[in-house]
Design a protein around this nucleic acid. Structure first.
Length: 280
DNA sequence: AACAGCACCTGTAGGC
DNA sequence: TGCCTACAGGTGCTGT
């Protein structure tokens, strides 16, 4: 569910409530939610710590603590971070963090794909992640450095290249850049590569402005849905007319993920779409 | 190296 | 109503 814009929105909602707060108690209700050194280490490492700052890295919400350790929270597909929950949501409660001032943070996660992990002071934080698409390093450079013949859609989802792009925004970016999702990444001409890089940045920034996309589960830290779903052009619009040319939006499975695109605006790559390469 | 397939999980929507 | 299947915003492992 949550991609970069949703995680950014959650983090921004949490920050004013958590900054400067001291952790009083941590309760784990589903042990597999805890990564790293595991559940036994988790609560003792957090108790008594004060949250200094919140930030986001890829799809992780990060809490920087006063001992310079970092708590990272990944929401998986259905994770929510809320300050209050309804009785019906109790069964999805995986983690609860109580602060000394009475603030209570609930981590709900029906599908249990979410993870919480502590990174020790000085430890390399989330080392497998690539660049931040909205950070200093240009997305275009990251794409240029990618020599892969994999489908560009698959490459956009590769967190070790661009951290934070998920299925919705990969499809939306490719549509905006008018690039077919099966185009081999390394075959993108410089102009199209630049167009794609610009599209990724624009799409992500636009989604943050809309406080994220709520298809079903996503909620801000205040419990409110995002609004960006209204602005999606192809994702989840299979069979609807393309907003640019009216052609029916297609949905194919690429790299195991549903992929939505306009077959007219996003032309198939030369040599066919299946990516079958001849050797030589 | 790259890729497909599946595992991890639960909930919901749609067809019958 | 119930049963069944398909599908879901993510990631990580295994085998080919």
């Amino acid at each position: 569910m949550p991609e970069l814009p949703e995680v950014e929105t959650v983090m921004r909602g949490l920050a004013p409530h958590l900054r400067g707060r001291r952790i009083a108690r941590v309760r784990v209700f589903w042990s597999k939610t805890i990564g790293g050194r595991g559940e036994k280490f988790f609560a003792p490492a957090l108790r008594g710590r004060t949250v200094r700052r919140l930030f986001r890295r890829g799809k992780h919400v990060c809490l920087g603590l006063d001992d310079r350790s970092v708590l990272t929270l990944h929401l998986g597909m259905t994770g929510r971070l809320l300050f209050g929950i309804r009785p019906g949501h109790r069964k999805h409660l995986r983690l609860e963090i109580d602060f000394e001032d009475g603030t209570r943070l609930f981590f709900l996660d029906p599908r249990k794909f979410g993870r919480a992990r502590i990174w020790a002071a000085g430890e390399d934080l989330l080392p497998s992640l690539g660049i931040e698409p909205l950070g200093e390093e240009p997305v275009e450079d990251a794409l240029r450095g990618c020599r892969s013949r994999r489908a560009v859609k698959t490459v956009l989802l590769d967190q070790s290249l661009l951290a934070g792009v998920g299925n919705i925004y990969a499809d939306e970016s490719l549509f905006q850049a008018r690039i077919h999702p099966l185009t081999p990444a390394a075959s993108l001409a410089p102009a199209r590569r630049r167009r794609l890089a610009q599209a990724v940045v624009r799409v992500l920034a636009g989604a943050i402005a809309g406080r994220g996309t709520t298809l079903r589960d996503f909620r801000t830290a205040e419990g409110e849905p995002g609004s960006h779903q209204e602005r999606l052009r192809v994702y989840g619009r299979t069979g609807e007319p393309c907003p640019a040319c009216g052609t029916s939006i297609r949905r194919d499975t690429i790299g195991g993920r549903s992929s939505h695109y306009c077959p007219r605006c996003q032309r198939a790559p030369r040599g066919g779409c299946r990516g079958r390469s001849r050797s030589g």
